[in-house]
Amino acid sequence: MSSIPYTPGLDGLRALAIVLVMLFHADMPGLPGGNVGVDLFLVLSGYLITRLLLAEIQLSGGVRLRVFYLRRLWRLMPPLLLMLALYCVFAPYAWPEYPFHVRDVVALLLYIGNIAAIAGSFPEKLMHGWSLGLEEQFYLIWPLFMIVLWRRCQGHLGVVLLILFMLMTAWRFLYVQLGDTSGVAYYRPDMHSTGLILGAALAVGGLSVGRWVAALALMALVFAVFLPRSSETHLIFFIPLAELAAVLLIASVMQGAAQALGHPLAVHLGKLSYGLYLFHYPIMKCLLEQDMPWYGVFLFGATLSYLLAWISYHSIERYARQRRHHYALQL
């Protein structure tokens, strides 16, 4: 599997995304759109994975699928196993009346948290697992999709992906206008894969931006986070706004702008962002049910999540990174 140069500012973007998500899950007042932090993650995932795939396709004409899937597994599964193991230990004490702990853990292990939500079997205490399922489903099919697209429309791949993004965005708008008010549309892959596709389009086509564009993107993100909205307007307006802001921020970072995202503290939090995302939700969910004020939930929950993410990053994730490197060399 080919590699791409490390860019610290992209970790800074992860830090911005995880802070927004944690503030949202702490129920911070006046932050109705903090969950667009997930959309920042999705655009960045689509961008980075597509760059990796493109580098290998251009080098060898294809993708070593076994290597790709094993590397993804070694990157994502070990921290997830740690979080779920801790959940299995503590959740029965935190929620003794909740009967679905085993069902929910299995759903996350199989990366079908979003499908379970759509089916009405909400993994209530592990609801953040919906996005993990969406990303893993993307990783499963995207290498095959990219190989086919590269062979059939190599010269127009970026345009094809941009058209796909626009069609999926139009479908989401149409679906909402047809009157779905069930609340599960947010978790549907056809409703929430646009960020992954847009990130992929950026990886293929690139985007030249001015130094002022980072400020414009942050302003758009402020609107996406703070403006009041209904669930319908969130789907049809604020998600695309956050996705476009993410694209502009990524392009700015790659061209040496958005220097604040390269600050050492932001980069440090970005490196721990996967662990922070995994651990924070059940912790904050439990604290909120104890009637703790939002700032207490955030401070205590973020601190405990940080400690667990730091331990995970420097222990099992370090080991997993070594195993990924081993597979890259041996397979």
Rank of each mutant, 00 (worst) to 15 (best):
L20D: 10
M22V: 14
M22F: 14
M22N: 14
L23P: 01
L23K: 13
A26E: 10
A26C: 15
A26V: 14
D27M: 12
M28G: 08
P29M: 11
P29G: 13
L31C: 10
L31A: 11
P32C: 03
G34Y: 08
N35C: 13
N35F: 11
V36S: 14
V38H: 04
D39L: 14
L40A: 14
F41M: 15
L42E: 08
V43P: 01
V43G: 02
L44W: 06
S45H: 13
G46P: 05
G46Y: 01
G46M: 05
L48W: 05
L48S: 07
I49S: 04
T50D: 00
T50V: 08
R51T: 01
L53K: 03
A55P: 05
A55N: 09
A55F: 06
Q58M: 10
Q58C: 09
L59Y: 12
G61H: 09
R64L: 08
L65F: 15
L65N: 12
L65R: 14
L65A: 13
V67W: 07
R71F: 03
R72M: 01
R72G: 04
L73G: 07
L73M: 11
L76M: 00
L76W: 01
M77E: 06
M77P: 00
M77N: 03
M77I: 04
P78R: 01
P79M: 06
L80C: 05
L80S: 05
L80T: 05
L80N: 03
L80I: 03
L81C: 07
M83P: 03
M83V: 00
M83L: 05
L86V: 02
L86T: 02
Y87H: 07
C88K: 09
Y93Q: 05
A94E: 11
A94G: 09
E97C: 09
Y98I: 07
P99F: 00
F100N: 04
F100D: 00
H101I: 10
H101E: 00
V102Q: 10
R103T: 06
D104L: 03
D104E: 10
V105I: 07
V106E: 04
V106N: 09
V106F: 11
L108Y: 05
L109N: 05
L109T: 11
L110W: 04
L110A: 13
Y111V: 10
Y111M: 09
I112L: 06
G113H: 06
N114I: 13
A117M: 15
A117R: 12
A119V: 11
A119P: 08
G120K: 07
S121P: 01
F122D: 13
F122W: 15
P123V: 09
E124Q: 13
L126D: 01
L126W: 00
G129F: 00
W130K: 14
W130M: 12
S131I: 10
L132A: 08
L134R: 07
L134G: 08
L134K: 10
E136T: 11
F138V: 03
L140I: 07
I141G: 11
I141S: 09
P143G: 01
P143Y: 00
F145D: 00
M146G: 04
M146Q: 05
V148Y: 02
W150K: 02
W150T: 02
W150F: 09
